[in-house]
Structure formats: C-alpha cells, structure tokens
C-alpha cells in the first residue's frame, strides 16, 4: 500500500494546497465551531455554511464522490443517535419553505439538523485534510507548540502505518486462503490472537531495527527540518476571506433565517 493512499489528493498545487497549514487548521476549527453554534433545529443556514467547504473542495479539485463516500462510511454512530430524536420529540412545529407551510415533529428537525451539521463539518475536515500533506500539518502543529513527543509519535505512526497495514493484509490473505469455514468461537479467537500476537512480535522487532538505524545516523532526541513556515500574502487573503464569509453568515444571514426552522 502506498503511503499516499489515504491523503492522495494532498499533493496538489492549488491555491488552497499552498496555504500555510496552521492557517488552514485554525480556519477549519473556527468554521466547525461556527457551524455548531447554529441552533439545535437550524437547517437552512447549514446550506449557507456548506458553500464554504464546497468551494474549497471544488477549487482544490477534490472529487466530491470521494468525499461523500467517506462521509457515508463514518456516519453510522451519528446516524443512530440522530434518528433517536424523532422518538423523543414528536411535538409538531411549523416549517415554512417558500410559500408552503407544513408541520414536522421537532425530533425530525433536530435529526436533520444534526446530520446536516455532521455533513458540513465533515466537508470542512476533508477540505483541510485533502489540501494539506500530513507532514505539513504536523510541522504546523509543532509551530503551534504541540509537545514534540506527540509530534514525533504522530510522524512515526504515520510512517509505519502503511508498512504494518501491508503486513496485516498478507496475514489476512493467508488466513482466508487456509480457513474455509467457521471454526467455532474458541478456535477463531485463538487464530485471531495468534495473528495479532505475531504481528506484535514483528512490530517490536521492526522497532528494534529502526532504533538501530536511528542510532547509526546519530539520532539525539531531536528531529530537524529544513522547512521554513511563514505567513504570506496568500494566507492573509485566505484569512480575510474566511472571516468575511463567517461574519456574513453569522450576522448577515442567520438573523433573517429565524434560527430555528427551515
């Protein structure tokens, strides 16, 4: 498995790919926070919020089908909790869409609102991750004073994630070619434990080899990087854009939306 399997779109060269990773990270956090600040039954305003990440994703040339397939894959837990809403709040509320006014249970409004916020904040996260290489994101986080131990740990984890995933794919393939039926819980557990255990032993051995290699290259507890990070005019332009967009929705659009209903 190639290491860029997960963030295969992060290597682009669009306007958003070239921004400073700190700026993008903070913008994504602020944007998510503003989305969550809209009321528990707000729906219409979420459409306006969605324009932001949508624009970034489109301009950065990231296929929306990829984004939405991944969002669908991670939604089950939220979906279950959101769908419990209609069971507990059946109080009808008036919903006005253009000339039509109809009533819908409050629980459904909440449910739709939760799922809408989930989609918008997930799109924001994708807009961040798909335009930023993981190494850049880590460098940005390090500049933002995250503990260096954690940064090194994240970097090492990312580096060896794909190595071990390849290994586990080999092990799983070996099992599926040899095991042709369900062997009962006890035996299945033993097999799984042996697989995980042998993977663990191999991981430890790998880490010892890495340690020897690090020592051979004179590792002294510090990682050095040639990268210089600085805020350019492009970043200031982006920050201004985000502030104007959020301000416009928060104080320009939201008050007219009625906050609560469609």
């Amino acid at each position: 498995m190639h290491h860029s399997y997960l963030d295969k779109y992060a290597d682009g060269d669009s306007f958003f790919h070239c921004l400073d990773s700190r700026v993008k990270f903070l913008a994504a956090v602020a944007f998510s926070a503003f989305v969550l600040l809209s009321g528990p039954k707000a729906i219409a305003v979420l459409f306006c919020f969605a324009v932001g990440p949508f624009a970034v994703l489109i301009w950065a040339d990231i296929p929306l089908s990829f984004v939405f397939r991944r969002i669908l894959a991670v939604c089950p837990f939220v979906l279950i909790l959101a769908l419990s809403g209609p069971f507990y709040d059946r109080l009808p509320e008036n919903v006005a869409v253009g000339p039509y006014v109809f009533s819908l249970a409050g629980g459904w409004l909440r449910c739709i609102s939760i799922l809408g916020k989930f989609t918008v904040t997930m799109m924001t996260l994708f807009a961040l991750v798909c335009t930023t290489r993981f190494a850049d994101l880590l460098a940005g986080l390090e500049k933002m004073r995250l503990p260096q131990v954690l940064i090194i740990q994240l970097g090492m984890l990312y580096r060896y994630l794909f190595v071990l995933m390849d290994r586990v794919h080999h092990i799983l393939r070996a099992r599926s070619t040899r095991k042709l039926r369900n062997l009962g819980f006890r035996r299945e557990t033993e097999i799984a434990a042996a697989m995980a255990g042998s993977l663990f032993i191999r991981s430890i051995e790998t880490s010892q080899k890495i340690h020897i290699a690090m020592q051979a290259r004179g590792f002294c507890g510090q990682f050095h990087s040639m990268r210089t990070m600085e805020i350019t005019r492009r970043d200031i332009f982006f920050i201004a854009g985000v502030i104007i967009f959020l301000g416009l929705i928060q104080w320009g659009v939201k008050p007219f939306m009625g906050g609560a209903f469609l």
């Binding site: 090194i152 740990q153 090492m156 984890l157 991981s203 880490s207 010892q208 890495i210 340690h211 690090m214």
Partner: peptide, 8 residues
C-alpha cells in the same frame, strides 16, 4: 520513540 511509533 521507535517502539511507540511502531506500536501505534
């Protein structure tokens, strides 16, 4: 450091 990274 190597051990933690690989175990992650």
């Amino acid at each position: 450091i190597a051990l933690m990274g690989v175990l992650g």
